[in-house]
Simulated assay, not measured.
Amino acid sequence: MNKTVGKWGTIAGVASALLPDIDWPLYLLGDKLLLVKYHRWILNSIFCIPLFALILAYIFVKISHIKRFWVFFWICAFALLSHLFLDLITSYGTMIFSPLSNRRFWLDLVFIIDPSFTAILLIPLILCYFLKRWTTLICSLSLILLTLYIGLCGIYHHRAVKSAHRFIKESNIEYKKMASLPQPTSLFKWLNLIETQDMVYQGYLDFLRKPGKRSKIYSDSFWDRLFSKYNSPQEVRYRSFKKLPPSPWIQKALTLDEVTDFYEFARFPIARYRVPEIADAMLGIFDKLGLKYHVMGEEWCCG
């Protein structure tokens, strides 16, 4: 298909694949909540992909002067669908049915920034530039390797979920929801999160770590400190966090539109607050995916 439109097919595919991420300037503007609220929204909608593909195909027909509208359409549509799928396999959450529904969907298979995943795509791209005669073979092998990698992530995700269910059964707790989230640097490391009526349980596991061999808790090494919380699935230790401690500050914060937006985005939110000595109170709504939101100001003054 790409041979009929030449390099313009590649340009159209790359541009279409990047289109859903053009809202990142919202983050650069300084308002992180805009990105939280609207990233992976309408630009990632499965209903809007045909419309975007039609518009992009029309644009590329005009600027390339190649009268292959439907070829451009299918290239753009496939690129948009591939971006949607690659977003869906992460844990961020994608509103694939917007604007009809703002519910986020995720498969929790691959960390949002995965060096191995990126290398499987990037290295073949570089090789194709220097080995043009072998482009088809290189791309085919890359897709096969990528499929195998995602499949392997799926296998370990399933094992992590089983580990979480084992903890739930052994602890005899009633849970509302749970998730096994991929972690950076390795497909063997996972974070289990379990939410009950009042608590959120957190456990880190590493499928390469053997039972009885625990990570170093104290170390000068950055990597040791980063991975000190991971243990084997048989010895994973769960920490518990109270979701909403009794506090008038937290209840008041939850009435703010900004906090409500973030709280709806967070998958396993917990709330914490502290009152510094200078009498300014700080409240934070924390999401166990790693994001946090602070509300500060005179309205939180105590005393």
Rank of each mutant, 00 (worst) to 15 (best):
P184G: 11
T185C: 06
L187G: 05
F188G: 02
K189S: 00
W190E: 03
W190R: 15
N192P: 06
I194L: 10
E195V: 08
Q197G: 12
Q197N: 14
D198E: 14
D198R: 13
D198M: 05
D198C: 02
M199V: 11
M199D: 14
Y201D: 00
Q202P: 02
G203R: 01
Y204W: 13
Y204P: 00
Y204A: 03
Y204V: 04
L205Q: 09
L205E: 05
D206F: 05
D206R: 02
L208Q: 10
R209F: 02
K210C: 01
G212D: 09
G212R: 07
K213T: 12
K213D: 08
R214N: 12
S215M: 09
S215F: 06
K216Q: 14
K216I: 07
Y218S: 14
D220A: 08
D220Q: 07
S221I: 07
S221K: 14
F222M: 07
W223T: 12
D224I: 04
D224K: 07
R225I: 01
R225C: 03
R225G: 03
R225P: 03
R225Y: 00
L226F: 15
L226S: 08
L226R: 10
N231E: 15
S232W: 10
S232D: 10
S232L: 09
S232G: 07
P233R: 03
Q234L: 07
E235N: 15
R237M: 12
R237L: 13
R237H: 14
Y238I: 03
F241K: 07
K242C: 04
K242N: 04
K242I: 08
K243I: 02
K243Y: 02
K243G: 00
L244T: 00
P245Y: 11
P245R: 13
P246R: 14
P246T: 05
W249H: 14
I250P: 00
Q251N: 12
L254N: 08
L256V: 01
D257V: 05
T260I: 09
